[in-house]
């Protein structure tokens, strides 16, 4: 299922005086089962990138390949492609419209050709994946839920199609700490079931915890690429690209400057703690 971008460029309103080039020759390869984090300053092309991946935009130049097949080629079945790639937009709670939660989650399965029983099974599973019980939630109005609950219902609406690749745009923006933890647990669970995941976020801590690989965009180009350890190694470089490094990495940097050397690879709290433990609790004494 590898997902590739080949020298992809995209220009909004091409051919008019308002043309804006959002991506410039971006190449990218995503492996099956990978969690890819995408970071970058506002306006760097993140949203354009994920819409190209989901087949919602057609590149001005270059190709988007899924399993080696150009998804924008004339003969390609785009509906089938969209079923394989799920995209959860920022503030997905805005897309809810049905009378009940169950109906809203079923909406995406309308053209799937599944039987009603199969659909219900899918919806039940999707709601359970986001931590809701079908019996208790199914008949409620989605519009009467709290913001965080709405977002989970909206995510269930995308999960119901069982995509192989899931793309999240700023999924944790505006969530409380518990909602954030719950979301990250969901990502890990989905990934463990074999779903490839693209996470677009400004939250470096969350990406350091979840992502196998990070991509930093700047002005429509890939500026940095690598594991969280590699990308966050140079704190100054990250700052120049206008992205945060994870809090533990920033702490490690401060400690290093004050004489307690912490390796650059400690980008998560667990990593930082184990480094500090090793240093200060040698022999088990605090």
């Amino acid at each position: 299922m590898p997902f590739c971008l080949e020298e992809v460029s995209f220009t909004y309103a091409a051919g008019t005086p308002l043309a804006v080039q959002a991506l410039r020759g971006v190449s990218l390869r995503m492996e099956a089962g990978e969690v890819l984090g995408v970071m970058g300053h506002t306006g760097c092309g993140k949203s354009t990138l994920i819409q190209l991946l989901a087949g919602l935009l057609v590149p001005t130049h270059g190709r988007v390949l899924l399993d080696g097949q150009d998804i924008n080629a004339p003969g390609c079945d785009r509906a089938a492609l969209r079923a394989r790639v799920g995209l959860v937009f920022q503030y997905p709670e805005c897309q809810l419209f049905e009378i009940t939660v169950a109906k809203d989650v079923t909406f995406g399965l309308k053209h799937s050709g599944l039987s009603p029983a199969q659909k219900e099974e899918r919806v039940r599973a999707a709601l359970e994946t986001v931590g809701f019980s079908y019996e208790r939630m199914g008949a409620q109005s989605p519009l009467a839920l709290s913001g965080g609950e709405k977002r989970r219902v909206a995510i269930a609406g995308v999960l119901a199609a069982r995509p192989e690749i899931l793309i999240f745009d700023e999924p944790i923006a505006g969530l409380d700490p518990m909602g954030r933890e719950r979301f990250l647990a969901l990502v890990r669970r989905l990934n463990a079931q074999g779903t490839s995941i693209v996470l677009v976020s400004h939250n470096a801590d969350a990406l350091a915890q979840c992502a196998d690989r990070l991509l930093v965009l700047k002005d429509g180009c890939v500026a940095l690429e690598g594991t969280a350890e590699q990308v966050f190694a140079d704190v100054e470089a990250a700052r120049r690209l206008q992205v945060d490094v994870s809090t533990p990495r920033a702490l490690g940097q401060m400690l290093t400057q004050r004489g307690v050397a912490v390796p650059a690879g400690a980008v998560t709290y667990e990593g930082l703690l184990s480094v500090l433990k090793e240093r200060f609790c040698a022999g088990g004494n605090p």
Partner: peptide, 16 residues
Amino acid sequence: EETDTIRKAQIARGAR
């Protein structure tokens, strides 16, 4: 702009 986003969001989850 919002219409465009919502249209895309619904397409992304299977609307036609």
